[in-house]
Design a binder for these strands. Structure first.
Lengths: 120, 120
DNA sequence: CAGGATCCTATACGATACTG
DNA sequence: CAGTATCGTATAGGATCCTG
């Protein structure tokens, strides 16, 4: 039965790595808010994010958008209008995050209630 | 119709805040791995985490466990054995994270495939 | 065993100004 | 409009040693 215990552990190590991979991409203060914004609005522009997300600076926005693009979660399209308009949207891969985003939204609401309840 | 647009925006602001609340609690390098470990094993001890989670130091583990306890996600129990054994488990509130953890596990596996595929 | 104390570094993030 | 450049701070995290 030693073998089964080993398999059990091995499986958990794999799950652990998977969860760390996810968080490596999604962690930080702004990535999820950015993704959430595109997720709910479908198409967003640089200045849209600046309005959607309270407190984000253009520096961070620019930086995070690049990383999300590198990770193939969002697609950047430059429309040749005058002045230039840049559009961001989720890639197919990015769309697979929708479940997580919805869960995080629901959980965040529930969690706030739970914590506030402790204060009063 | 202006009113409807405003409601629409207001709703999204709420979702945005919710998602930020969630990430505020879960962000960082170690919180989700710790929760995942308890989630899959049910009960864990300090030294168990040290083994489960590659690379974590006792300093960080101790710090993160405290924060998770403050946020009511885990429960700490001291068993009066000799030597002392400390047991950690998910609270009821912590258990509500299971869905997210499972999703993050699945997504992490898929994401790794997606990125590796881009390299080869 | 389950941490705490101390010291140190890296990087995440913020503020502000500037550009094609 | 959609960013870049520069500078400064704060915090996250790592390494090591110590303790009841």
């Amino acid at each position: 039965m030693k073998c089964q215990v080993e398999d059990f552990k091995k499986e958990h190590k794999k799950e652990m790595r998977a969860v760390q991979d996810s968080m490596y991409v999604l962690s930080g203060k702004w990535k999820i808010p950015i993704l959430t914004s595109i997720c709910y609005y479908n198409k967003r522009r640089f200045s849209d994010f600046l309005n959607d997300i309270d407190g984000i600076s253009n520096r961070m926005l620019s930086k995070e958008l690049k990383e999300l693009e590198i990770n193939k979660l969002i697609k950047r399209t430059v429309l040749d209008t005058q002045p230039i308009v840049v559009q961001y949207e989720l890639t197919e891969h990015g769309l697979t995050l929708q479940t997580i985003i919805n869960n995080l939204t629901e959980w965040g609401i529930a969690h706030r209630k739970k914590i506030v309840q402790g204060i009063e």
